[in-house]
Design a protein around this nucleic acid. Structure first.
Lengths: 211, 211, 211, 211
DNA sequence: TCTTAAGCGAGACGGTACGTCCGGTCTTGAA
DNA sequence: TTCAAGACCGGACGTACCGTCTCGCTTAAGA
């Protein structure tokens, strides 16, 4: 977590508050909020998810436990906020070049993000937690995965619009074929998903798409 | 966990004992071992991983906690043993028909296993836990995923041998393209990976493979 | 334990806290403290020391175990606090009459306290525990036995002051001669130490003292 | 524990076996029996009663736990057997000299035994345990304290027979007056009960007895 | 002399309690 | 009101022992 601007703050709060009405937030300590998110981020990277406790976050952040419970419903919610804009920063594909180049760039960035970045460690922890906690899984998908997926679909849509991809292409399926193997390597087999892997993935996809 | 024959027992013990030398195990209570694995399985399905505790397993199995700690190093190790032969039972592709039919059948079974079966719930919990615990992840991959992957590679190898797939096909990549999207749907997006999805996945794969 | 006034509370806290500096204690729950001491007292009388566990005390008191461990270093320390003022209540000799009457009264009260009262059961358990735990023994002697002994010595000193006892009397030895046999009967031989026994003890003591 | 002859062995077994019929005992391993008693004795002196466990005794003695449970009903019973003849060895007053000398000698031996000897440590542990376990207390008194007390009474009886003590002396009370203060110092106050203390105790007793 | 049944070392078993950690709630006093 | 601090009740953790139970083995008795 590196940049936490006001926009993001309002978004994240809206999604993680349990009560309906928005919190007053006027009184909320910005200092405490940032310290908590940074402490969570740091502790996850240093000690792993298993040793990430609310008490440790509070202690590291120099904050009372209640201040965490007041604003986030769970440890996972803190991490989601800590992940924050990182998904947007790392994974917003540029609208240039052709589909093929755009896919190579974006999927390469995705693979690097997932496997190498600190934010990727947070992401993996959240996916792991989502396997144990259906409610948290729903929030994570709606707030973080869905927007990303829409940006990814836009790459393909632009390809169709430019005539680089057939109009009858099943975009959802196509995206799963591109993005699925990368996730599979990172989350399941643990094998490296480097540039060469991504390149051949795109090669085969484009060959199949062009028929 | 449904069948716990002697073969499985010896396999699982070899994998979960921390010391190198094989345990005497002659003294080990088979009754307790089965009760523990069944209790873990049942409790996971009933209450989810988050509420699965060693204490609850012991209580449900009518067993002392020490009996669990004596033979398994962690909750995840118990679940791995509980998963046991299920991966083999559900996911051993038959050696018949052509590649295409074999893939349809196996990937369909995989999708159903992951999303619908009780053993699939154990599998998902283990993948989730693996995101938080690198050591456990390594064991899980070596003991459970690797054998499965080899059986899957054999499908493709048979296809190559029969001339149904090109000889220069990158089998690892091909497998990731087939298996990755299914895992992605189940573990990440949570969208259904039904028969139609699998069929179109195979359609596009075979189209691309045949050029 | 019947009365737990503020004085006793401050005394007991001072003696059972392991760190030097006084605890803030302002945050401490008086309700929990009293419930714990009463539960310990009751359980000792009902089940005996052997069956007195921290867990049972916590359960009976409706308190978390940690609340006990936070304020007392051991089961024996809880019992010492539960004994508390009882030693003062039962065993503070009045400053009236002559030595002989005072001794008869006080030693009778001592024998009844040790053998018959509920607080006496706590006292015996603590003496028993002191045989196994030298550190606890030291605390018990300093905090509880020493003040009592001083009150007992005062009886004899008053006797000397009034000319009822010789000035060259070894008061420590004299006290051991009076108090030792009673303890011996209660703690070692288990024989009754009734009024007649105490009376003859005093008879012989006074006869010897007057030469 | 130093000498464990056959007489003692039969006595101790008779008193500690829970079942009515005597055990065959012919099969009993003398090696194991001695190793257990020595291990118990050593561990008590080294680690104190609190850390004396059946498992530790068995491990130290190189013996299975069952071998202990087969022959003794409790840890205290093992210790009683380990104490064994020591009471007789240390505390059998000789039948010579006058009462006064005999008392000085015996009470001095008693004080040294209680406070200084290894067997005294066992004795104190047993008295401590007796405060928590009435059944064990009864056995201890019957088997060990009563015979000692009778030997002690014999000293006084000889004094009466020789005309050194008045015939109307209450021997039980007299004995408590002599032996009680020593126990009190060792078990309760923890103050030293050295030779001078014993001497003055006897002085005062003889003065009172002669009137 | 040869069973054969016991005692034996070993240690797994079902349990109970230990003392610790942390979750999530509540309370206090300062800002 | 929020905040830092931290006590509170609850509950799971992983460990230590309890007392019981089997397992092979050794070993002394009597058939």
């Amino acid at each position: 977590m590196r940049i936490l601007d006001e926009t993001k703050r309002l978004v994240s709060m809206a999604s993680t508050r349990q009560t309906i009405g928005p919190p007053p937030a006027s009184r909320r300590s910005e200092r405490a909020r940032r310290a908590i998110l940074e402490a969570a981020d740091d502790l996850l990277v240093e000690n792993g998810f298993a040793n990430l406790t609310i008490e440790a976050i509070a202690a590291r952040a120099g904050v009372g436990k209640q201040t965490i419970y007041r604003w986030w419903p769970s440890k996972a919610a803190v991490l989601m906020d800590a992940l924050g804009e990182d998904l947007v920063e790392h994974l917003t594909p540029a609208d240039r070049d052709g589909v093929e180049a755009a896919l190579r760039e974006h999927l390469g960035a995705l693979a690097r993000f997932l496997a190498l970045s600190e934010a990727g460690a947070v992401y993996r922890a959240l996916v792991g937690q989502a396997q144990h906690d259906p409610e948290m899984a729903a929030t994570f998908r709606n707030e973080y995965l869905q927007p990303l997926r829409e940006r990814e679909l836009a790459i393909l849509e632009r390809g169709v619009a430019r005539g680089e991809l057939p109009t009858d292409l099943d975009l959802e399926l196509a995206l799963d074929q591109l993005v699925g193997p990368i996730h599979h390597r990172v989350l399941v087999t643990g094998e490296p998903a480097g540039g060469e892997f991504v390149d051949r993935l795109v090669d085969r996809f484009m060959a199949g798409a062009r028929r």
